[in-house]
Amino acid sequence: MRTETVAAPNRFGPIARRVALYAALILLAAPFVIPTLWMITSSFKPLSEIFASPPSFFSENPTLAAYSEAFTFQPFARQYLNSVYIALVVTAITMLVSSLAGYAFARIRFPGRNLLFVVVLVGLLVPSEVTIVPLFQMFKQAGMVNTHWPLILVTAFAAPCVLATFIMRQFFIALPVELEEAARLDGLGRFGIWRRICLPLAKPALSAVAILTFLSSWNLYLEPTVYLTSPELFTLPQALTRFTDAYGGEMWNTQLAAATMTVVPVLVVFLIAQRQFVESLAHSGLKG
């Protein structure tokens, strides 16, 4: 099941074919790459050059002013920390909740299992704008507005977590049952089996879940904007839109600098980890 095996059909294709492939890929990649690239290079431009027409990539007078401005205008370091810790907490909770539920839905027989699974799947389908108004009311009643609780709880239990539960269930269904039976003969209970046997085997699925969950928390925009009003509590996507002057005018270069700082680390991590990422998805039960 290695990549190389699959690649076999075209491996010895003529050179022309290879050139065509590269050409197609480079052309296709342009709209994916140029905006990000432009964002990064423009963050080093003075304001007047950002609007230059026609637009250019590289500045004639590069400056780091926007980067220092990003930190002095708002508690940006704090906001960065908020985003990181919320995403990590959400990811940890989701991995626990989804691996438990996914295991039970896959392996344990109990009355109403299929019905309850459908109920859980509904969580994946409800658009957030249906629930955001009622949720705001609920969190307000609970005194949790302007805290990080809504961002953690909703993400860790609603849609992203349901997707995770689905992925975990698919994985555990595909896992050979014999392993568990052997463990049971050794006297392990359900929890012991889940903890000692299944979780270690589920590493690929768990890492897929971790990556997807981290990204959905990291990119959350609507919810923080609704629940948070204090700048020191903001998360990054929300903070990006707050780089405005006293009249609401956009501080474009500062925004671009801040956006660059939020994007580059994640891109670097993905670049390093992408093989594991794709392969963990491949072995996660999402396979064909």
């Binding site: 039970a104 109990f110 109920v119 509904v122 609603a158 889940w194």
Partner: peptide
């Protein structure tokens, strides 16, 4: 045990979605 395992996820969906 099955109910216990799915409880966090099920409650979460009921409280935060349904």
């Amino acid at each position: 045990t099955g109910y216990l395992f799915i409880a966090p996820q099920l409650l979460g969906v009921l409280v935060f979605v349904v």
